[in-house]
Design a protein around this nucleic acid. Sequence first.
DNA 1: ACCGTCCCGTACCGTACGGTACGGCTTGAC
DNA 2: GTCAAGCCGTACCGTACGGTACGGGACGGT
Lengths: 209, 209
Amino acid sequence: MPPGQAALADHASPADQLQARLLDHTLRVLLRDGYQRFSMNAVAASAKASKETLYRHFGDKAGLLHAALERLAALIEPLLRDGLDDAPTSPARLRRLGRNYLHGCYLPEAIALQRIAIADGEQGLGPLFVREITERAIGFVEAEFAGLGSEHPRADAEAFLGMIQGKLHERIMLGTVLPDLDRRLDEQIDQALRVMAPYLTGLAENPRP
Amino acid sequence: MPPGQAALADHASPADQLQARLLDHTLRVLLRDGYQRFSMNAVAASAKASKETLYRHFGDKAGLLHAALERLAALIEPLLRDGLDDAPTSPARLRRLGRNYLHGCYLPEAIALQRIAIADGEQGLGPLFVREITERAIGFVEAEFAGLGSEHPRADAEAFLGMIQGKLHERIMLGTVLPDLDRRLDEQIDQALRVMAPYLTGLAENPRP
DNA sequence: ACCGTCCCGTACCGTACGGTACGGCTTGAC
DNA sequence: GTCAAGCCGTACCGTACGGTACGGGACGGT
């Protein structure tokens, strides 16, 4: 197997391997060219495949993007769980969860795909993104707040995620350049936890009956 | 009057009136057709103008969108200030400011334009959006937190805005339909202020020296 | 050895769009 | 009245893209 290729399953059928390769190149082209210059031709050229193959496997352009989004979601999901299995519920764990979320969310491929999903909401790509990625992340954090004794775990989860994304998210989406992204992400979480600290203290002192 | 810079005065020159009309139709078409189907032809048809006129006034497509964004920013700016002139600095004022921000931010035209700005960050439209709209709003809220005695007014402002936008912003951008938007916005602010309340109380009890 | 399936490469078609050109109309200045 | 400028409507050009068609090669099953 050529190095550098991200193969998911060891025993994938040739067809599955081909599809995975095509989707990897889809993400790569998306990342390299942005949405404007993204085209089926570019994907085919990058993957050294024929357009006919693309259409055979994915039907049309929307189908290809749909499949690429699902593949990305599959890649992000384990990132969310990283390093969380054994830790007990706690604010520190919240920090870790937040970092995981931001790191998955701001993978270059994730940014590129989210841009596309935003640009054409009508294709159903936007709702799919919400379902596959956003809602799943919210579910994680919601469980966390429930464990911390919140009376409104879902609302708290959305507030927390909104706060750690903050305006940084908007700037990233809008293409404002961002050197030092990792450091900015950590700062963002620090600020969010600072503002939220009194609330979390209140939760700890008055646990839900 | 010599053909100087476009003035926003009531007595605009015919050329300015025409430009304003063209930009209004630009926003309208953007809103109606979305980004995918947005075209110079559609704008010209909607405004019953000729393409030549569009190109004469705005140079090219990017120039038209640029001008439309600036016009939108000019429309949104007074919304931010609405009802705030006489109120003293207070958490209640914060709520009002948040509502104003969300209402301006989720004007249908603003959503459509932000989608475009996100889709092609390379055009410089994204950074322009950040400069003209995002940063301006942050500045407002920052002053508010400074008035409330925060030691990190800017970070607090970003956290507050991020929280009131929360995941609703992502869902809106991603095209998940949203009936009852106004009610959702109010809920969003309620939740944010609930989570932030202990922090604000702390600010009130320990004002900055 | 044969055949079906998949794939590559390339060529092709229709369409849609950005941008330009041109003829004719209206308007306002001198 | 005359002239220039701006505008409209339409037609036009080049290009790029989504999607299809076709010939030829490689592989696996029978």
